[in-house]
């Protein structure tokens, strides 16, 4: 057989296959499209454009989420084949004392972080709202930390907390003749130490939202109250806070989710011993990261992710329920 003939034999099925898989469906679609009415064509175009974000969400969001649930029922080290594990990953999780410590840590971030940050943010916003002098400048100053990257901020604070020759806080203490504090090297002080910059970072955003909420309250209520001679505390308690409820609900849910998912501050402030000392600062997200990308136990990490998902869901639902309407 000549070489030329052989080539032809190879080429013809290849061309045919391309036609069958790509060309033919396109041709079919185009001839179908041509016979539509203008109205139908408009619908087709609408769906064509809608399909892009839809497809994006399905591929980038929903598929991985569903896959994480599926993965949590398997053992997989990324290299070998997935092995069916049933509920064993969840059983292992329930029996792991580290998990319960981490679970409690995560709630500590939530229970300390959300109320403290909201009270501080509200106080600042409440008084800032009454200030006219350099109002914009002060507001910008409060917002600045929110614009800073968490990594840079965490590292600066990490150095603040160092022992004597380096750390600012301990140097000040030493100058005043007070004993050094271990901060990040203590199982009891480490979590609040990590939380402080995280609260500080989110403060600017909360202040801005509170300010917008305060501005949205109609002045007529305040005027009426003043005419009646009501005290400032009563105005705050009976008018301002109740009318701020939508703002508070939004901030509580938003910051709760943020604190439940805290990661970058903890990771960057404790890189040498992530989540340490003795897991005292380790949140759930860090445990997931460690299990997945240091331990390569993907199934176990997925099980932890499922737990985090459920926690976030339940906490958000409870908060919406309690805070929305009564």
């Amino acid at each position: 057989m000549l070489a030329q003939d052989r080539n032809r034999q190879i080429d013809r099925p290849a061309t045919h296959r391309v036609w069958r898989t790509v060309g033919f469906p396109i041709w079919l679609y185009l001839s179908w499209y041509r016979s539509r009415t203008i109205r139908q064509k408009r619908v087709v175009w609408a769906w064509t454009f809608l399909s892009v974000p839809l497809l994006f969400y399905v591929v980038i969001r929903f598929y991985p989420t569903a896959d994480a649930f599926w993965l949590s029922l398997h053992d997989w080290n990324l290299l070998s084949d997935m092995e069916w594990a049933g509920m064993s990953n969840f059983g292992r999780l329930a029996a792991d004392p580290e998990f319960w410590q981490v679970f409690w840590n995560t709630f500590q971030y939530l229970l300390l972080g959300t109320p403290i940050s909201l009270v501080i943010a509200f106080t600042i916003a409440y008084y800032l709202d009454q200030v006219r002098f350099m109002h914009g400048f002060i507001r910008a100053l409060y917002f600045l930390p929110f614009l800073t990257t968490a990594v840079a901020m965490a590292w600066v604070w990490r150095w603040f907390y160092q022992p004597v020759p380096v750390g600012v806080f301990n140097n000040i203490l030493a100058e005043l003749g007070i004993a050094q504090q271990p901060f990040l090297r203590s199982t009891s002080q480490a979590l609040p130490s990590v939380l402080a910059p995280a609260i500080w970072a989110g403060l600017g955003f909360q202040v801005i939202i509170f300010l917008a909420g305060l501005r949205a309250i109609p002045q007529s209520y305040y005027e009426a109250a003043r005419i009646d001679g009501v005290s400032r505390l009563t105005i705050l308690w009976e008018i301002t806070i109740p009318l701020l409820k939508p703002t508070i609900v939004f901030l509580v849910v938003f910051s709760s989710i943020g604190f439940l998912r805290i990661f970058d501050h903890v990771f960057n402030m404790t890189t040498n011993d992530p989540g340490g000392p003795l897991n005292s600062t380790e949140p759930l997200v860090l445990m997931i990261y460690d299990t997945a990308f240091n331990g390569f136990q993907m199934g176990y990490a997925a099980a932890q992710t499922v737990v985090l998902f459920l926690v976030l869901l339940v906490v958000s639902l409870i908060q919406l329920r309690i805070l929305r309407d009564r």
Binding site: G276, L278, N279
Partner: peptide, 19 residues
Amino acid sequence: NESDQRGEMMAMVDRIVLE
């Protein structure tokens, strides 16, 4: 798992020093 095995070494010393 080098990082986890190292983690146990860190915890071992921390338990003595901190606790």
